[in-house]
């Protein structure tokens, strides 16, 4: 098998960095997330490839928080779209966990299927190579196995690396992966290493059947109870690897400006507020319900898989202690009222 020795990792990254921007899990001061290798500061920052995962997902690499779409110019009654900003520069997501990759696959469904291909997403996405870091040691908030993710054989990866102690076992899966592998072929060695043994999940989550049951629970009283402590703060949507909702806005200076899209959150009142002032989800509980139904039911109905990938970040980040695993449990246990 091919392996990349951990001692050679940084040199390999430097090499990759010449042809593409490489995003890796790292800790910078108090934050942890996927940052560009260019921003890595020796001695201060810490690579987190061997940690379970990082706090902020690699979502921004495929869907930047703010993305310019096109520039606008006004001349009297004339309006022009001067330039569009599809960005196809090569990027590598290195060491993403299977849950985060599944989230990207979910976004692929949204942005690339059902009649329309989003050109901004498509250009960016096609230029991204994904190196997955297979998971053998689930953390206490992990439940990807329950959400249709295979932690040791992740779908959607161009390359899969497996932590074998001194080195990563390197498995190329796609032509895109081949191209990347060939760039750093000089650092790969042929060696036989024992693969890690997959450890059992700490939480036992039974998602199966939840979507079907939820179909009957839209009007159930359970939502008021489940969402009562929710502040509708939106952290869950921002740290979520798969929450993709966006807003389109404009910025103008006099006669020039640009339109951009930016992340939005279904937790905000303004999200679904209509021009006339009406809002079908004006109440915080209604927004809470929509989010969990989207994650656990609606997405599954539309695209065949849940939009939650079991990464556990929202469980960790929620300032009110709302726990999606508990919500799944309570839904499963709830008695249906006719």
């Amino acid at each position: 098998m091919k392996v990349l020795s951990k001692a050679k990792l940084e040199t390999a990254l430097n090499k990759l960095n010449q042809g593409a921007e490489v995003f890796l899990p790292m800790q910078k001061a108090q934050e942890s997330g996927f940052y560009s290798w260019k921003l890595f500061q020796q001695g201060q920052d810490e690579l987190m490839l061997d940690a379970l995962n990082v706090y902020l997902p690699p979502k921004h690499v495929v869907l930047p928080q703010t993305e310019r779409m096109y520039s606008i110019k006004l001349e009297g009654q004339d309006m022009k779209i001067e330039q569009t900003f599809e960005d196809a520069s090569p990027r590598v997501i290195f060491g993403a966990r299977p849950c985060d990759i599944k989230a990207i696959l979910c976004m692929d469904e949204v942005f690339l299927t059902r009649g329309y291909e989003d050109s901004f997403y498509k250009c960016r996405r096609e230029a991204i190579t994904i190196v997955a870091n297979a998971c053998y040691q689930p953390g206490p908030a992990c439940f990807c196995n329950a959400m249709e993710v295979n932690p040791v054989e992740p779908a959607g990866a161009d390359i899969i690396i497996r932590d074998a102690g001194e080195a990563y076992v390197w498995e190329t899966k796609t032509p895109k992966g081949e191209a990347l592998t060939s760039q750093i072929a000089e650092f790969l060695e042929e060696k036989s290493l024992a693969l890690p043994v997959a450890q059992p999940f700490i939480q036992d989550v039974k998602y199966e059947g939840t979507a079907e049951k939820l179909k009957k629970m839209f009007a159930d009283h359970i939502w008021a109870k489940l969402g009562e402590a929710c502040h509708n703060c939106g952290i869950c949507t921002y740290v979520c690897p798969s929450c993709y909702c966006f807003d389109i806005q404009v910025k103008m200076w006099g006669d020039e400006g640009y339109r951009f899209r930016c992340w939005d959150s279904c937790m905000y009142e303004e999200y679904s507020r209509e021009a006339g002032g009406g809002n079908p989800r004006g109440d915080g509980i209604e927004r809470f319900r929509n989010r969990f139904l989207h994650k656990l039911e609606f997405f599954k109905e539309r695209y065949g898989t849940p939009l939650c990938t079991g990464c556990g970040r929202c469980i960790v980040a929620c300032p009110a202690g709302i726990n999606i695993v508990k919500i799944i449990d309570e839904i499963k246990e709830a008695e249906l009222h006719a």
Binding site: E31, E46, A51, V54, Y55, G139, P140, V316
Partner: peptide
Amino acid sequence: DPLQAMAKHTGLKKIN
């Protein structure tokens, strides 16, 4: 702080 405890416990963040 439960958030810090969670982050530390899950290994998503190194907390000082």
